[in-house]
Design a protein around this nucleic acid. Structure first.
Length: 133
DNA sequence: GCCAACGTTGGC
DNA sequence: GCCAACGTTGGC
């Protein structure tokens, strides 16, 4: 099983929106690297949901329920998305500042490639983030 | 195929 | 609101 981080602007689609829907297409991604990462995602993989803009922080955990398929918001057929469902909200959101200030996360894509919206997370990073909660 | 111009993302 | 980082576009 692999781990991932999904970024979203809460004003567009927030953690609460995901909980309300129960299951959602992670659509609207228009970046090739992010798309390739989604293609590598398998059913059952776990993802951190990260809120960008405003209050940057990791807010919850979601599970992949369908691997990459056509993005229904894209007519060209170029873009794909996965389906995710909420697993649980973190008891305490982990702010970006806290991740940046901790040297054990220096190699995280969130730090080194801050604009990538779908990122792989290593098992160690996953475990260490959860240890902060 | 290079690179300048431009648009977007997203932290601060 | 500013600006750095980065992706994309298009002229040559």
């Amino acid at each position: 099983m692999n781990y991932w981080l999904l970024k979203t602007e809460p004003s567009t689609f927030s953690w609460d929106d995901l909980v309300r829907k129960g299951c959602a297409e992670w659509d609207g991604v228009r970046n090739y690297l992010a798309r390739n990462n989604m293609r590598a995602m398998a059913k059952g993989d776990l993802c951190f949901i990260y809120h960008s803009v405003g209050k940057p922080e990791i807010v919850g955990i979601a599970r992949v329920v369908a691997s990459a398929h056509q993005d229904s918001t894209d007519a060209s057929g170029v873009w794909q998305c996965v389906d995710v469902e909420p697993v649980k909200k973190l008891l305490r959101s982990i702010p970006l500042a806290e991740i940046k200030s901790n040297t054990q996360f220096a190699a995280m894509k969130l730090v080194t490639h801050s604009r990538l919206s779908v990122q792989p997370i290593t098992a160690d990073e996953w475990k260490n983030i959860l240890a902060l909660v």
